[in-house]
Simulated scan of single mutants.
Amino acid sequence: MKGLMRIAAALGLCLIAGATAAQQGASALPPGKPMKIIVPFAAGGTSDILARALAQRLGERLGRSVIVDNRAGAGGTIGTEAAVHSDADGTTILIHSGAIAVDPSLKRNLTYDVQRDLTPVTTAVVGPFALLVGPTVPVQTTADLVKYAKANPGKLNYGTPGIGSSIHMTTEYFKTLAGIDMVHVPYKGAGPALAGAMANEVQVLFDPLATGKKYAQSGKLRALAVSTGKRSDLWPEMPTVAEGGVPGFDTGVWYGVYVPGKTPKAVVDLLNAEFVAILKSPELAPWLRDQGLEPVADTPAQAKARLAEDIQRWAGVIKATGIKTE
């Protein structure tokens, strides 16, 4: 018993020391100035939920208030623009989805350059998509789907939450790599797209793992694969699209942390250390799992490389398919 008490006391001292070190490191931030995390989407979505979970823990670690500021509108560009023009001192943070890498090619009137005017702090999390088909589609694997689609060009419909969404881009990427022709049916949100798949309005759908797995296990839809390049710990028995015969396919919805472009490196490094510690903490793991998300928690350099790679990828897909916003 005494041994356990000594271990508990030692762990407690480590936690206190960690919090104290974080608060001491926060001296790189302007003293007394409130911190905020801008979410360029409405409250209630994944970006918002993630931002609130991270804001609470960041505030606790730094010993200061961190609020979430929802700046929705124009597909995320209003909030992003607000972050770009904020003070570059680490007190304003942006959490954005992977759509930030689509915008440069899809939106022609941006007033900012995401690679010049924002500095990545870390890629926070990634959420695999599940590749789903309706129960009437006579396929059991990704290879079956590709073969069936090639034999029936233009006869399969695929659903998305809208033009330019991550799911739309992912499906067009799948079509391009697989060399198949399917018809796009955009819905006003992910829920209606799921309903459309179950009603056989569309026969193919990529959907976030948290919901896609639930509907597949209920028998309402059939899951063929996950979208990421390696199998997901959230569904380890499910093969990847690449394993199913579409080499090189590797994507999913991801969320990144950014600060204004001229933020000092010392501040970026401080924020990176804090966010990485939070994202890798055991207490956050069950919550992330429930959201269908896996921590990435990479370095600023790695996050910058991911952003650049995705910008190039989606530019190629948009050019090859001619996708345009309405």
Rank of each mutant, 00 (worst) to 15 (best):
L94R: 05
L94W: 05
L94S: 05
L94Q: 02
L94K: 03
I95V: 14
H96N: 14
S97G: 15
G98L: 07
G98M: 10
A99G: 14
A99C: 07
A99H: 10
I100F: 02
V102D: 12
V102Q: 10
D103P: 02
S105F: 06
S105R: 05
L106V: 05
K107H: 08
L110P: 11
T111P: 05
T111L: 13
T111W: 09
Y112V: 08
V114P: 15
Q115S: 12
R116M: 01
R116I: 03
D117K: 07
L118K: 03
L118P: 08
T119C: 04
P120H: 02
V121M: 04
T122G: 07
T123K: 11
T123Y: 04
T123N: 14
A124I: 03
V125F: 00
G127W: 14
G127I: 11
G127Q: 15
P128T: 01
F129H: 13
A130D: 15
A130F: 13
L131W: 03
L131D: 06
L132D: 00
V133F: 12
G134A: 14
G134S: 15
V137F: 05
V137Y: 07
V137R: 10
P138N: 05
P138W: 01
P138L: 03
V139G: 12
V139P: 10
Q140G: 15
T141E: 00
T141P: 02
T142V: 15
T142Y: 01
D144F: 04
L145M: 13
V146M: 10
K147A: 15
Y148P: 04
Y148T: 05
Y148K: 12
Y148I: 02
A149K: 00
A149D: 03
A149V: 04
K150Y: 08
A151Q: 13
A151W: 06
A151R: 10
N152D: 03
N152F: 06
G154C: 07
G154A: 00
K155F: 08
L156T: 06
L156F: 09
N157S: 12
N157Y: 10
N157T: 06
N157I: 02
Y158S: 09
Y158H: 13
Y158D: 06
G159T: 01
G159H: 02
P161S: 09
G162L: 05
G162W: 06
I163L: 14
I163Y: 12
I163A: 11
I163R: 13
I163V: 14
G164A: 08
G164S: 07
G164Y: 09
S166C: 01
S166P: 02
H168G: 03
H168N: 15
M169Y: 07
M169C: 01
T170F: 12
T171D: 06
T171M: 15
